[in-house]
Write a protein that binds this DNA or RNA. Structure first.
Lengths: 136, 136
DNA sequence: GTAGATGCAAAGTATTTGCGACAAG
DNA sequence: CTTGTCGCAAATACTTTGCATCTAC
């Protein structure tokens, strides 16, 4: 049930090198949404011989295999997170950069309906809310 | 009522140079969501002396002034569109790249509700649907 | 007249890639 | 073995910037 990234690689026939294992571990443990630079820093602490090119190649590979999700939040840098079975969207605090994950099935349904209305089948979607904490 | 980009510049105290007028015109006439390269091409046809640096500087300025919207759709390049009073979201055909604009007030309301639930005031949001045309 | 805009080319970022050496299946 | 991966540095792609010149207001 708890499909780790490593297990998914085996399933999908992705060769499991030492480097990939380290990167998989780092991504699994990440509670945030790190960019490649950040991943590289964390990975380097475990194995300083891993190059940033490998990190780039690996996250791209994982993304193509549907193992991790890539986000292009504001800021130019792509950020990644492990893909779990439970889909969620993001609420981003524009002041602090903090990211809150949420799910809203009602919105999900409406999205399907909209796509349907235009004659499309939804293959993916992205919903980002940008907000500021209330005074209250 | 029909605030042109030029009029908005005057209102906001943005200096109206010849270059900016040309860029404003091109953006106003664009029915699609061009990236800077594409804008530069169109602008060049009108005045070939305008540099791409100016296009970059101008779209950035317009964005900061709230005159145009910047989108980071898949593909690395930022794409722009004139901001009209009517907000809308995007449905992107993953096969053709075609972009359909839509509005769904129900979804808009739910977004506010979600932000509210977490104690946030919504300042912006981004909703992109990616789909493929149905066989039907 | 003066603050701000432009063009050009050089400098930044973020990401990708060619290549010889190397390792997983 | 053989195919695919890695590290490295060079190359790309997109965007920003320093500086001297020019222009809208």
């Amino acid at each position: 049930m708890k499909d780790t990234i490593e297990e998914k690689c085996l399933t999908k026939g992705v060769k499991l090198t030492d480097q990939r294992k380290v990167i998989a571990k780092v991504m699994s443990e990440a509670k945030d949404h790190p960019d490649v630079d950040e991943l590289y820093k964390r990975v380097s602490k475990i194995d300083s011989k891993i190059s940033i090119a490998t990190v780039y190649r690996t996250v791209k590979l994982f993304e193509e295999e549907g193992i991790v999700a890539k986000h292009d939040f504001k800021g130019g840098k792509a950020r990644y997170e492990e893909l779990s079975e439970s889909h969620h969207d993001h609420l981003i605090d524009v002041k602090t950069g903090e990211i809150i994950e949420f799910v809203d099935n009602e919105i999900e349904q409406l999205q399907k309906k909209v796509a349907d209305k235009f004659g499309y089948d939804l293959v993916d979607h992205k919903l980002e809310l940008y907000g500021v904490k209330k005074k209250s």
